[in-house]
Amino acid sequence: MTKPPHRDAKPKGAADEQPGQVRASDTAASANVPLIVGIGASAGGLEAYKAFFENLESADGMAFVLVSHLSPDHASMLPELVARYTSLVVMEAADGMDVEAGHVYIIPPDATLTISGGVLQLSKPAPPRQYRFPIDTFFASLAEDQGDNAVCIILSGAGSDGARGLGAIKERGGLTLAQAAIDHIAIAGMPASAAATSLVDNIVPVEQMPARLKA
């Protein structure tokens, strides 16, 4: 009687896979993951966004998620306004969207935005004003989801939203940037609060940030 082959037998010609060996399919999958850049802003944010995207020559391999303080009572024109300054695809974020390179996703009003598995998670309504820290919330989820493949940027704005989330990004090896307080565009509250954590990698004018990302 012929002995049947063991069910774990490899097909003839199959190469032995060594421990720790990276398969080609794994490498390809990793190559498709964009560098996800979370950008937080409040008062003065539109001018900062304008300066950022007008100085972004290319966004190969990068995706951007903009988290702004928006009035919960009105529709936002921010996607239309930002689209004037960039050739990237600009859209309002929606629940279940995959984050793709070459795209800009913008939080809608009265919403909490997070990310899990590279997919945007959106819930409404947002918490009451005194408990609403949308930038911290998104940055913290970005840190948890992307680790050292995450970038956060704090732009113009009053208050301190974003500083705690920036700390979470830094703890997991991501890149942290803040707008220079001397920058004529900036309202210094949020960038200064970020700088006070001593966890910001670079404090630079907005115009220099795209080059820092490319570097």
Rank of each mutant, 00 (worst) to 15 (best):
Q21L: 05
A28Y: 02
A24M: 06
A9E: 07
A63R: 00
P11G: 03
A28R: 07
N55A: 11
Q21N: 03
S42Q: 11
N55E: 08
A75V: 10
L66G: 04
L78M: 15
A31Q: 14
A28K: 07
Y49N: 07
S25Y: 01
H69S: 13
N55G: 05
V22N: 04
S42T: 10
H69Q: 13
A51S: 14
V37A: 11
A14H: 06
E80I: 15
A43H: 14
S68K: 02
D73F: 09
K50I: 00
V89Q: 06
E47Y: 08
K10Q: 06
P34S: 06
V82M: 10
M77N: 15
G61D: 03
F52R: 02
F52V: 01
D16L: 10
P34M: 05
L66W: 04
G20I: 04
A63F: 00
R84G: 07
P34R: 05
D73A: 12
K12L: 12
A9P: 00
L56K: 03
S25A: 12
F52I: 03
G13P: 04
L56C: 07
L81V: 15
R7S: 09
Y49S: 04
R7W: 10
A28V: 07
V65E: 00
I36M: 13
G40I: 12
L56R: 02
P19K: 01
A28P: 00
A28D: 03
R7I: 11
M62R: 12
Q18N: 06
V33E: 10
L70K: 10
T86C: 08
G44F: 08
E80Y: 15
R23P: 01
D60F: 01
A29R: 13
L70Q: 13
A28Q: 06
G45L: 09
A59W: 00
L78P: 08
E47V: 07
N55W: 04
L81K: 14
P19G: 01
A41Y: 10
L66K: 05
A31T: 07
G40W: 11
A29W: 01
E17K: 11
R7T: 08
